[in-house]
Computed example of a mutant assay.
Amino acid sequence: MEDQTMSGGEINMHEEMRRAFALLSGKWKLEILWLLNQRLHRFGELRKAIPGITQHMLTAQLRELEADGLVSRTVFAEVPPRVEYAITPKARGLGPTMAALTAWWNEHGRSIPPKRSPPRGRQARGG
């Protein structure tokens, strides 16, 4: 890859890419965007679709994505309240990136061993 770090008032692509990576960093953000790229989801649907995510973490990640303009949140005045999350046109611009990642995974995914999830909760000590 070509080093595009520049000085003298020109665009510093290294810094710009760091900003782009920061928008998408977080354990769950890409998975949330992937799901919302398929269709809109309610909060509970997202929580069920992402094993291991806590309610607190899902809320935090959705808030960050919304603040960055990648996810929209619609609240319906119903009892009980209904909230739907959708991907924004800005985030849809990531479509080619998602397609490239899918193609890469289809080619190389089988060569990557699955990670074992650590056990959740407290573990009994042997003794």
Rank of each mutant, 00 (worst) to 15 (best):
M1F: 05
E2I: 10
E2H: 11
D3P: 11
Q4V: 00
G8R: 10
G8Y: 06
G8C: 03
I11W: 00
N12M: 03
E15W: 02
E15G: 01
E16N: 03
E16M: 13
R18I: 04
A20C: 08
A20T: 10
A20S: 14
A20F: 15
F21E: 07
F21R: 07
F21G: 07
S25T: 11
K27W: 05
K29D: 00
L30V: 13
E31D: 03
I32A: 01
W34C: 02
L35W: 00
L36N: 01
N37Q: 08
N37C: 00
L40H: 11
H41A: 14
G44Y: 04
L46G: 09
L46D: 02
L46M: 10
K48D: 15
G52H: 14
T54N: 03
Q55M: 02
M57H: 06
T59K: 00
A60M: 01
Q61L: 00
Q61V: 00
L62I: 01
E64D: 03
L65Q: 02
E66P: 00
A67E: 08
A67W: 09
D68E: 12
L70R: 13
S72H: 09
T74W: 04
A77F: 11
E78S: 10
E78W: 10
V79Y: 03
A86N: 07
I87K: 06
T88E: 12
L94F: 15
G95E: 15
T97G: 13
T97D: 11
A99Y: 03
A99S: 08
A100G: 05
T102V: 08
W105K: 08
N106M: 09
E107A: 08
I112G: 01
I112H: 02
P114I: 01
P114R: 14
R116H: 07
S117Q: 14
S117M: 14
P118C: 11
P118L: 11
P118W: 11
R122Q: 14
R122A: 15
R122Y: 07
R122G: 07
Q123S: 07
A124T: 03
R125L: 09
G126H: 07
G127M: 02
